[in-house]
């Protein structure tokens, strides 16, 4: 075997070993690597009380209630829901049907007491005048059943959340 081939073998095998090691590391730490849990993922986890966490999903239609500076809304992934209480500045993109990520502590009553709310933008880019045209309606029609009620504002759903 030539020197170059032997070196290539060494190079590839050490890179594969390193890749597997890092892959296992990331697999073991996936609950910390993930930026947020969907309501369904949250239901399957056994979360310790008072642990700070982030919950991401769509703002359920008709769920936003403002009383003074306090705002109540519900995050849904169309399977499970998590109610959220928040007081503070909301991002401009916050609206019903929009993808959001709320960070805070889960109370005993199952309500997320959020200290920050971030808007999650999806991967679709559409000119303003096209947004309400037939193209948008076609996308809406292709969504899962029950999609219409959660996307009252016509924003398209983030793909990561609908999984």
């Amino acid at each position: 075997m030539s020197l170059k081939k032997r070196r290539l073998g060494w190079l590839i095998s050490s890179l594969v070993a390193l890749g597997m090691a890092i892959g296992l590391l990331l697999l073991a730490a996936r609950d910390t690597v993930t930026f947020f849990f969907s309501p369904s993922e949250l239901a399957q986890l056994s979360i310790k009380q008072d642990r700070r966490l982030r919950v991401g999903g769509l703002v359920a239609a008709g769920s936003v209630q403002r009383t003074g500076t306090i705002i109540h809304f519900v995050i849904t992934d169309r399977v499970q829901t998590v109610p959220v209480i928040f007081s503070g500045i909301l991002p401009d993109l916050f609206r019903e049907g929009q993808g959001v990520v709320a960070e805070g502590r889960l109370g005993t009553d199952g309500v997320l007491h959020a200290s920050s709310v971030l808007a999650k933008h999806d991967e679709t880019y559409t000119p303003r005048d096209v947004a309400e045209s037939s193209l948008q309606k076609k996308w809406r029609g292709e969504r899962a059943p029950g999609a219409a009620q959660t996307t009252a504002t016509g924003g398209s759903a983030p793909a990561a959340i609908t999984r």
């Binding site: 993930t34 930026f35 991401g56 971030l118 999650k120 991967e123 880019y125 000119p127 996308w139 990561a160």
Partner: peptide, 27 residues
């Protein structure tokens, strides 16, 4: 990373196989 984990960053628009995620006049 945007496919393996939940991220705040949106997933890829251009290499998406299904529908085009970006209007032609932006793409």
């Amino acid at each position: 990373s945007v496919d393996w984990w939940n991220t705040l960053h949106q997933p890829a628009s251009i290499t998406r196989v299904a529908l085009p995620a970006m209007a032609m006049e932006m793409l």
